[in-house]
Design a protein around this nucleic acid. Structure first.
Lengths: 327, 327
DNA sequence: TTCACCAAAAAAAACGATTGAAACAAGATT
DNA sequence: AATCTTGTTTCAATCGTTTTTTTTGGTGAA
C-alpha cells in the first residue's frame, strides 16, 4: 500500500530502528552522518509519510484531541473562529482535531464514549447552555482525560473565557458613561453578568428577562414585548447574546421604534455578525481565535502532566451604533 | 492503562482471538454459545472499549474521514449545518471526522499531506472560491483517496450541490412572476447562475457586478454604489451570497431607500441568517444538513469501491420580505 | 481400530511504528 | 593481552487489534 519504515530500511540497506531514529530525530547523536544522509535520501526518494496511527499505538498517544460542541451553538457562528485558533496551535505540534457534536445529554454521553474509543489525548468541551452539570461527561472524567471547557466553567475543570461578572461591569460602565441609569438585562436571573451590571449601577435589582430559551431569531419578538411591557421603560438593555440582540433590534425597528434613540442595545460576544444590523450592534467582545489558541495551549500543559488554572481574557467594548448618549 | 482484549480473554479464560470474534461479530457462528455468553459478560464487567486506532492498523482503515474547508467560508455560517449532516451519517458507521482548514493554496497542500499522514479513508473537500484548480490537492488525488467536493465541482471528482444554472433559473422565474424584467446580477460574469437568469429573461445580457472579492459585510457599500451607478436602474437584483445580499439591504436602507419598494433583493443559500435582516431576505435555498448526509453516503460508496456520479439537489425559493410585486 | 471430518478454541502472524537492550567493531586503558 | 570505552547499528519486544493457520477433542464411517 504505502511506503513504510521497512521499505526505507531495505532501500537504504539498514535496520528499521535506525530509520526510525533518524526520521523522528529521537536518536539525535546515535546515528552516523553517512547513514543518516542515506536514510534521509531514501525517505525523500520514496516519498515516505509516517503513519501517525501506528506511531500512536506504539507510544501510547493518538495525537488527536476531541472537540465537543453543542449543535445549536455551533451553528451560531463564533465557533468557527475558536476552532481555527485551536487547530492552529494543534497543528504546530502535529496534533489533529476530531469533531464531536451533540444536541442532548444522551448524545453527549455517547460522544464521550466515542472519544474514548478513539483514545483522544485531550478534550476541548463547549458545554451547551442548557447543560446543568457535567454528569453526561462522567466517562471522560473517570478516565481522567485532560479536558478544558469553554464558554462556561465547572468546578474542578480548567476553563477559558471571560469572567461573566466583568462582562456585566464592562457593559454597564459603558452605558452609565452615556448617561443611562435605567438598564434592563435579558439573561438568567442568577447570572454573574447581571450582578456585574447591578454593582456598577449600585442597585439591588433591575428589570430582568430570564427565559431566553433558545438563541433563535424569533426571540426578538419575545424580547420586544417584554421591553414594552415594563412599567418604567428602560433606556438601555444588555442582551445575553449577539443574535438575540440583533433580533431585538430588528423587531423594534419593524415596529416603528427609532433605535438607538428609543432604546440602546448592547450585545455580548462581539461577533462580526452584528455589523449587518441597522443600527449596527454595539457589543462586549471576546477574543475568539485567541481563545482557541489558549485552549490548545492549556490542553498541552495538561497532557504534559502539569496543573493549570482557569484562564480569563479581558473583555472589550466593540462600539458600533446601537447605543446613544442621553446627554 | 485501559482494558484490552487480552484482559477480557484472561478474565473469561479464553484466547483473545475468540474474544475478537465475539466482540466484532465477525465469527458469527464460529464460537460456542456458552463461551460467547461468558465473553460478553466479561467485556461488560470490565467496561471494555475497543481501541479504534489499533483496529485500524490491523485492518488497514482508520475509520476517519477528513474535511477540508476554507477558513473564510467556514466562518460564514452555513458550514456547521453541513458538517453536522456529515457527522450524523459518519457516526452511524462509527466513522470519525477530522477537521482541516486552510486559507491559502500552500496551506491546503500542507493539510493534504497532513490527512495522508493520518491515513484518512476519505475526504470531503470544500474548495475555496478563490481556488483555480485542484492542483494543491494533488497529493490526495495521486494516492486516489476517495474524495467528494462540495460547493464547487471539478472534472473527475464527484461533487454535491445544486446546478448553478438551475439556481439562476429559480431566482429569475420567481422575480419574473412578480413582474420584474430589469434584473441585475451580482456575481461572476462567467457563472452559470447568470446564464440561468438570462435564459429565463430571454436576454443576451444583464447588469453584472463580478468583483465580489470577499464575502464581507463591507461589500454592501460597494454593491449599493454599483446599483446606484447603473444608467437604467434595475428593479431587482440577485446576489451571489446571503451575506452580501443582507449587507446590500442594510446599506440601501441606511441610505434612505425603502426596500423592497425601491429594489427587490434575492440572495443565494437560504441561510437562517437572512431572517434578521429588515426586510428579511428572500433567498434561493439549498438543503444543508441533507447535503452533509449525502456527502457521507457518497464517500462510503467510494470507499466501498463503487463509482459515483455528481449529485444535485433541487433548489427552492425561501420567500421572505425582500422582494415586491410590480403589479 | 483407524481415518477423515467437523466444530470450537487457541496460537501465531500480520499491521507500522517506537524503544530499551544487545551486538559489534575499533581504539584507549590497564 | 585482557578489559573498557565509545560510537554505530541491529534485534526483539511492545502497543491492541484482526485474521489466517494450527491445534484440539469428539463424531461417525470404513
Amino acid at each position: 500500500m504505502s511506503i513504510t519504515l521497512k521499505d526505507i530500511a531495505s532501500d537504504a540497506g539498514v535496520g528499521m530502528s535506525t530509520v526510525s531514529y533518524v526520521l523522528t530525530g529521537s536518536g539525535v547523536n546515535k546515528v552516523g552522518k553517512e547513514t543518516r544522509k542515506r536514510i534521509l535520501a531514501s525517505a525523500e526518494k520514496l516519498g515516505y509519510l509516517p503513519n501517525i496511527g501506528a506511531r500512536g499505538l506504539s507510544c501510547g498517544r493518538t495525537f488527536m484531541i476531541g472537540v465537543l460542541l453543542e449543535e445549536q451553538e455551533f451553528a451560531s457562528s463564533f465557533y468557527p473562529d475558536i476552532l481555527q485558533g485551536l487547530e492552529h496551535v494543534l497543528n504546530q505540534r502535529n496534533y489533529g482535531l476530531l469533531l464531536a457534536s451533540y444536541s442532548s445529554a444522551e448524545e453527549l454521553k455517547a460522544k464521550c464514549f466515542y472519544l474514548l474509543q478513539r483514545r483522544v489525548d485531550g478534550v476541548a468541551a463547549f458545554p451547551g447552555a442548557w447543560l446543568d452539570d457535567l454528569s453526561p461527561m462522567q466517562p471522560l472524567l473517570e478516565k481522567q482525560i485532560p479536558m478544558v471547557t469553554m464558554t462556561r466553567s465547572f468546578p474542578g475543570i480548567p476553563s477559558i473565557g471571560i469572567e461573566p461578572f466583568v462582562i456585566g461591569e464592562t457593559a454597564a460602565r459603558y452605558l452609565v458613561e452615556l448617561g443611562h441609569r435605567n438598564i434592563a438585562y435579558a439573561g438568567p436571573e442568577s447570572s454573574p453578568r447581571r450582578t456585574g451590571i447591578l454593582s456598577v449601577l449600585g442597585k439591588e435589582t433591575c428589570p430582568t428577562f430570564g427565559k431566553l430559551a433558545s438563541y433563535d431569531f424569533e426571540l426578538g419578538i419575545t424580547l420586544f414585548d417584554w421591553i414594552r411591557s415594563l412599567a418604567e421603560r428602560p433606556t438601555a438593555v444588555v442582551v445575553e447574546s449577539d443574535i438575540a440582540a440583533v433580533a431585538l433590534i430588528r423587531t423594534a425597528c419593524a415596529s416603528g421604534w427609532k433605535l438607538p434613540r428609543d432604546l440602546s442595545v448592547v450585545g455580548i460576544d462581539g461577533l462580526d455578525f452584528g455589523k449587518i444590523s441597522l443600527p449596527a450592534l454595539t457589543s462586549v467582545g471576546q477574543p475568539t481565535f485567541e481563545r482557541g489558541e489558549k485552549t490548545a495551549e492549556l490542553l498541552f500543559e495538561l497532557i504534559d502532566g502539569r496543573k493549570v488554572d482557569n484562564f480569563f481574557f479581558q473583555p472589550r467594548m466593540i462600539v458600533r451604533e446601537s447605543c446613544c448618549s442621553l446627554e
